[in-house]
């Protein structure tokens, strides 16, 4: 099944599930309020899940903080409403592709999450929205870690009050 077929099939499937009610996801686009992405609990969990698949934090999460919160803040505050819309459309597309090609995102394993991203990035058919979503998720997950206390203090030796000045110290 190519990407377009998968999406068409999924659109039909999701139309069906809509009537089943309850367990179906809301389309991510419905969660845009005044140009900002305001995810419900489930979408927030998805963002966390995707980010942690891209860049696992597990044992260091306490010092690094919650990636989804950071990603949302940066998206909503530092990107244009057009970019937010693109991100959300790409998110929705990703969810649907995941469901058609692997399984529901809720149940997807980290490897499946990454595989789908890599496959799509390698595909000539990737839509602008999906590409923007995948690239943004990866770069924001990296930025989140790199601007964290753990990275800045431990790896880059950042100190609010620096060590006494030494102009020519040996490396």
């Amino acid at each position: 099944m190519n990407r377009r077929e998968a999406l068409e099939a999924l659109a039909i499937m999701s139309a069906g599930t809509f009537f089943l009610g309850g367990c179906a996801d809301r389309p991510a686009e419905e969660l845009i309020v005044n140009g900002r992405f305001v995810p419900d609990k489930r979408h927030l969990e998805y963002l966390t899940k995707i980010s942690e698949a891209i860049l696992p934090l597990h044992d260091i999460k306490e010092r690094v903080g919650e990636p989804a919160a950071y990603i949302l803040t940066m998206m909503n505050d530092c990107r244009s409403t057009e970019q937010v819309a693109q991100f959300v459309a790409g998110f929705e597309e990703y969810k649907l592709l995941m469901q058609s090609q692997y399984q529901k995102l809720r149940k997807a394993a980290p490897a499946e999450i990454i595989d789908l991203m890599q496959e799509q990035l390698a595909s000539a058919e990737i839509s602008g929205a999906l590409e923007y979503f995948v690239v943004s998720m990866r770069s924001l997950s990296i930025d989140h870690l790199r601007s964290s206390e753990l990275y800045m203090a431990d790896m880059h030796e950042y100190k609010l009050v620096p060590d006494p000045y030494s102009p020519c110290a040996p490396v």
């Binding site: 698949a53 891209i54 860049l55 696992p56 934090l57 260091i60 980290p110 490897a111 990454i114 991203m117 890599q118 990866r138 990296i142 870690l145 790199r146 990275y151 790896m155 880059h156 030796e157």
Partner: peptide
């Protein structure tokens, strides 16, 4: 400080960022 290039996905990506000072 210049970090190593961020390569790969998942554990590999994490390693490229945190693996070496």
């Amino acid at each position: 400080f210049v970090g190593a290039p961020t390569t790969g996905w998942g554990e590999q990506l994490r390693e490229s960022i945190l693996g070496a000072k």
